[in-house]
Design a protein around this nucleic acid. Structure first.
Lengths: 407, 407
DNA sequence: GTCTATTTATTCGGTCGATTGACGAATCAA
DNA sequence: TTGATTCGTCAATCGACCGAATAAATAGAC
């Protein structure tokens, strides 16, 4: 229980060394000093200095020794769980999920319960309560949590960090969520759109690992898109990138309904699917899931509604593919991840797109959001400890108004 | 005429110092050592060492002294044109443009002539001849050119750097352009899509300076899109990002014509505009430009064709806006940059998009491509001299298959 | 059992680069 | 002419790195 951080100002070069040692520790967990020196190509004594500092900070701990090889045995080290913790939260309209991980990215625990339907402040209390419990159950004092990221529906303004449109959750807009939650939990909180985080989840632990250009098409109660381009998340200037509910697909884009909730959303969103099924004379249903189940059970009306949904989804996918040319298209969300539906979309897409794209279905499913939240929280923590900040930035080009050389 | 580079291996920390000194020199051109020390927050001593090294390399040169202030006068320095040159080339179906700039980004000269219509090898010869002439006319031996970027129509594969589809230029595909041209010109050549470079041109010297999220919609003989997201160009996995000719807009996406050249292209491309005008009973024209001129002259058929073109363009714009949420939408290309047309598109877009986006028209027009090529060539040169390579990279997260800690 | 080869980790200079403070040089202002 | 101010260099010091030498610990050969 050492008082952790106090990174006592290090020179740039030492910071770089620390950083690369940390990276090696992340990826080759139980490892000796000598081995670390090899992979980082630092000298053995620099390595010893860095490891000593890490030990003192409680960032690293010894775990056993090598044996069996010729020569002196080496002490093995790994990142200590005491090094810091992060919290990921997925706030859905129905379910609230919380997960805890340590600085090495090991997921220590996960918990979920039904979202408090009273919304607003009650919900924030619920989040705080659940998070606290999770921390204590894992012998982690809540104060040891150093980075928190929460997935939320709606548009998150990338500058202010505030929620701007959260249609599904009552009393969440016009509430200073970052401030209130940060105070309750005692750590800085970052909000991010749930679809974006689900995408990052699939990239970290799911079906899109080691891919630099991914489009994630989420189809559930609504329709949304997450974009990962050049190895970075695309948020857009107002955080509204991927709001493809407004794509002019599936109806007259000038119609009143389309202007309000978006053309595509009106047809393909959950209420749209149910409405189309009812209008076509289908039996009584109250969720889009039932329509899909009816279709699989042989209901021809449901089948045609599903086919049309797949067709429209494929159009949206073709649009995205033509625009950003991703390597992989991930289908997610409660509807999109259904294998039968994904197959239909893939078939439709073959007819549309000149360039076939690899289609995958979500492997994390409901966990995607919370895993993505963990990944962002983790990256934030790492950057806090080992960031090189503006060092990394690209060299900006000179502005056009060059004063010319004068002798 | 010192033998320039020979950067005699510098330590990381010195490289960082050099880099930030260079950056300061780029942006505050005539500047003294003392001033440099202030803005870079390096010590005066270090500054003198770095400047001495730069002087020896011929990278900077003194230009006069300060005067008028109290205290000792200071020698002012600026980046020397001898420090290195870059070449930008814009290879169009009609016109070939070449421009020369020095390491500070000062455009030294520009020249253009009609593209050799025999295409293929003749064209490469023409490029080499024009480039050589430009260099010699500016007292720069071609061998001093250290970085060359060429804008070309078609899809450039981001991995191989080869041209994959160049419909408008004869005999350009299946030709090792990078290799042949690099050999002729004696420097490494990079190819990039012309629309992407036009976008980068507008960002560097044109109408989209200091904006991190830009969509560039080019409408000329064809239709294309350039995307600049998170301060970086979006190429896509196959270099096919922005190929919005294939957007399912303006017709049945399953129709034969659409599958070949793309739905939107079929309607909005130059031949599409002319075809629609003819089909509507318009008078005899042989270019899309004439249709637009007829419309302005009062021809009602032409006007309706133009209106429809604007409507479809606005639909494409709305699609892009919903997908990537740019801060600025630039309209470019011979048709797109027409103010009357841009106005129409803006009006249509207002009806479609829930979130109004700032629309600008290209200010560089035909020069955009070559200016963008210069900007990329320049950045490459700067990175070669002062790049920090993987130093800059983000800390990768650990893979999911974490071996757990074992005591 | 002993010895040797091998590997780990620490100690000891030596170098590089950055900073600091002092100082001479150059200039303006009074 | 003197004083204030700023520029640029010199000398000393400090932090961080590396390579070489050395001590320590172990497996395997004999």
């Amino acid at each position: 229980m050492t008082t952790l951080p106090a990174p006592p100002i290090a020179s740039v070069t030492r910071q770089l060394s620390r950083r690369s040692v940390f990276e090696a520790l992340l990826h080759r967990s139980p490892i000796s000093r000598a081995e670390l020196a090899k992979v980082t190509s630092l000298s053995k004594q620099t390595m010893s200095e860095v490891i000593d500092a890490f030990l003192q900070q409680g960032l690293v701990r010894p775990v056993g020794r090598t044996s069996g090889n010729v020569g002196r045995t080496a002490v093995l080290y790994e990142l200590s769980p005491e090094g810091g913790h992060v919290l990921g939260i997925d706030l859905g309209a129905r379910r609230l999920t919380v997960a805890l991980a340590d600085i090495a990215g090991r997921v220590l625990a996960e918990a979920d319960e039904a979202t408090d339907s009273r919304g607003g402040a009650w919900m924030l209390d619920q989040i705080a309560r659940l998070s606290d419990r999770l921390a204590r159950d894992n012998h982690t004092h809540p104060s040891r949590i150093r980075s928190i990221v929460m997935a939320t529906p709606g548009v998150v303004n990338p500058k202010s960090g505030a929620i701007e449109m959260a249609p599904n959750i009552t009393g969440l807009d016009h509430l200073n969520v970052v401030g209130l939650l940060g105070e309750k939990l005692g750590s800085p909180v970052i909000l991010e759109n749930d679809i974006n985080l689900a995408l990052l989840g699939e990239i970290w632990h799911g079906c899109a690992q080691n891919v630099d250009n991914v489009a994630y098409l989420a189809l559930g109660s609504g329709v949304g898109l997450g974009l990962y381009v050049n190895g970075r998340l695309v948020r857009g200037e107002n955080g509204a990138a991927g709001e493809i509910g407004y794509l002019p697909i599936g109806g007259d884009p000038l119609k009143a309904e389309c202007r309000v909730q978006g053309c595509l959303e009106y047809e393909v969103g959950a209420t749209g699917v149910v409405r189309r099924y009812r209008e076509a004379g289908g039996s009584d249903v109250d969720s889009e899931r039932q329509v899909f189940e009816q279709a699989q059970a042989g209901d021809p009306i449901a089948a045609s509604v599903v086919d049309e949904t797949a067709r429209l989804t494929a159009l949206a996918a073709a649009t995205v593919i033509a625009t950003v040319d991703p390597q992989v298209l991930v289908l997610g969300g409660s509807v999109g991840a259904r294998p039968d539906f994904a197959d239909k979309v893939a078939r439709e897409l073959l007819k549309l797109s000149p360039r076939p794209v690899e289609i995958r279905t979500s492997t994390l499913n409901r966990r995607a959001g919370v895993v993505g939240a963990l990944s962002v929280a983790l990256r934030r923590l790492h950057d806090e400890f080992f960031g090189v900040a503006e060092l990394a930035s690209v060299l900006p080009l000179p502005p056009p108004a060059q004063r010319s050389a004068r002798q």
